[in-house]
Amino acid sequence: MGKLKNKLALTGAASMAALFLGINANAARMDMVDVSNNNGYMSTAEYVSMRNEFGVKAVTVKISEGSTYKDPYAVSNIANVQAAGLYINGYHFARYATKTQAIAEADFAGKTAKADGLPIGAVLATDVESQEAYHNSKATNDENNQAFMQEIAKFGYRADIYTSGSWANNVMTVNGKTGWIAGYPYNPVGKNWYSSNHAWQWSSTAKFRISYGGFDVSQLNSTYYTADQKSNVKPTDPNAVKNIAKNANKTVNSAKWVSDSETYTLKTPVNLRTGASTSSSVSTTLPAGTTVKTDQAIIQGGYRWVRQPRFNGYGYLATGPASNSLSYIKTGVSHTYYTVKSGDSWWSIAQCNGLNMTALANQNGKTLYTTIYPGQRLVVC
């Protein structure tokens, strides 16, 4: 993302981006971090550390999901990000399948954002990566997203679309000079993916010195997520950022496929993807009780994946964390369950049971964006 500082002439949007970012093409930068309830409570000190040590300029916090879910940490995140002197934005995880639902979710998101203290003029992006969107036509998704963004503008917020690189301009349209696109290369050093879009999310596992867990980090190509203002924030140790970039996604392509000719019976619903990556499109969700015959397996991206031969190619299932042996989905295996209580989150349940949040969600056939409800039973062992 960006160009080397030199005497070459830069024009138009590229010139603006270069002036704003102090561009160094040698390493993907940690310009923006997004957080949600999955990260737990984030203190002002943590955001200050992100800014001073790693050069983080902006934070985008989850506000809402669907038409009912409000992120319980949005208020504290917004306040603490602002106290740390960082630009603040928000996002809504979209569940809409129709234009009417898109407008209703935008109204819900806009009202929730205002109540939570998201300042007018901030970006309130729609995060479009759900099953509902996948099963729509591109034209329908474009209409729905446009309706959402037009409605969001009525609340005084600036709109944008977040989605994966495999979905952009395939499942929905994301024009140049718009959009926040996720794509995780094996080595983001020296690369500039999605340079025509506002932002490129290049890792979901970045580590910060005083914060627990992995974080989604993005490089900014424009000033859109910093309120159209130039930011002079720079990391105190650029080499630390470069090292994170070099190692961020190395588990993705470092392993090899091995033979895994097995038959399994799913104990929970599992997403079947078009590739062995959480950023790959979901082709369908296999319900509990489905028999899955696999031919190969691989460890990458922090997960154990299996490949299922299908009539039109292959499907890929994440069966658990990298250390998982698939035992939790084999027929006849007993489990330990946890019953969700009011106020619980993926983070709090994982902490209580000594688990990784992503592993906990995955072994229950869900993602960290899936809303959990009191009374729901989750497999914890």
Results as ranks from 00 to 15, higher is better:
residue 6 N to C: 08
residue 9 A to L: 12
residue 12 G to Y: 07
residue 16 M to Y: 10
residue 18 A to F: 12
residue 25 A to F: 03
residue 27 A to L: 01
residue 31 D to I: 04
residue 31 D to K: 01
residue 32 M to S: 06
residue 39 N to S: 13
residue 41 Y to P: 09
residue 43 S to I: 07
residue 45 A to I: 02
residue 46 E to P: 03
residue 51 R to N: 02
residue 54 F to M: 09
residue 56 V to D: 00
residue 60 T to E: 15
residue 62 K to G: 10
residue 63 I to F: 05
residue 78 I to M: 06
residue 82 Q to S: 12
residue 85 G to H: 01
residue 86 L to R: 07
residue 91 Y to S: 08
residue 92 H to A: 00
residue 92 H to K: 04
residue 93 F to M: 04
residue 93 F to T: 10
residue 94 A to T: 02
residue 95 R to K: 12
residue 104 A to C: 00
residue 106 A to C: 11
residue 109 A to M: 10
residue 109 A to V: 08
residue 115 A to Q: 10
residue 118 L to Y: 02
residue 119 P to C: 12
residue 120 I to N: 08
residue 122 A to Y: 08
residue 124 L to Y: 07
residue 128 V to A: 12
residue 129 E to V: 12
residue 133 A to I: 11
residue 138 K to Y: 10
residue 138 K to P: 01
residue 139 A to E: 15
residue 140 T to H: 01
residue 142 D to H: 05
residue 144 N to M: 11
residue 147 A to H: 02
residue 148 F to K: 01
residue 149 M to G: 08
residue 149 M to E: 05
residue 158 R to A: 02
residue 167 W to L: 11
residue 168 A to T: 09
residue 173 T to K: 04
residue 176 G to W: 10
residue 178 T to E: 15
residue 179 G to H: 05
residue 180 W to Q: 02
residue 181 I to D: 06
residue 186 Y to R: 08
residue 186 Y to W: 13
residue 188 P to F: 07
residue 190 G to T: 06
residue 199 A to W: 03
residue 200 W to Y: 06
residue 202 W to I: 04
residue 206 A to M: 04
residue 209 R to V: 13
residue 218 S to Y: 01
residue 222 S to E: 03
residue 223 T to S: 06
residue 230 K to M: 11
residue 230 K to N: 13
residue 231 S to W: 03
residue 235 P to V: 08
residue 238 P to K: 03
residue 245 A to C: 09
residue 251 T to I: 09
residue 252 V to A: 12
residue 252 V to Q: 12
residue 256 K to Y: 11
residue 264 Y to W: 14
residue 270 V to C: 05
residue 274 T to I: 05
residue 275 G to W: 07
residue 276 A to Q: 06
residue 276 A to G: 03
residue 276 A to N: 04
residue 278 T to A: 13
residue 282 V to K: 03
residue 283 S to G: 13
residue 287 P to T: 11
residue 290 T to H: 07
residue 300 Q to P: 03
residue 301 G to D: 06
residue 304 R to Q: 06
residue 306 V to P: 04
residue 310 R to D: 07
residue 322 A to P: 00
residue 323 S to T: 15
residue 324 N to Y: 09
residue 324 N to C: 14
residue 326 L to W: 15
residue 327 S to N: 15
residue 329 I to D: 14
residue 332 G to W: 14
residue 333 V to A: 15
residue 334 S to G: 14
residue 336 T to L: 06
residue 340 V to S: 09
residue 348 S to V: 10
residue 353 N to Y: 05
residue 354 G to R: 12
residue 354 G to F: 01
residue 356 N to I: 00
residue 360 L to H: 04
residue 364 N to V: 09
residue 371 T to G: 10
residue 375 G to S: 07
residue 380 V to C: 09
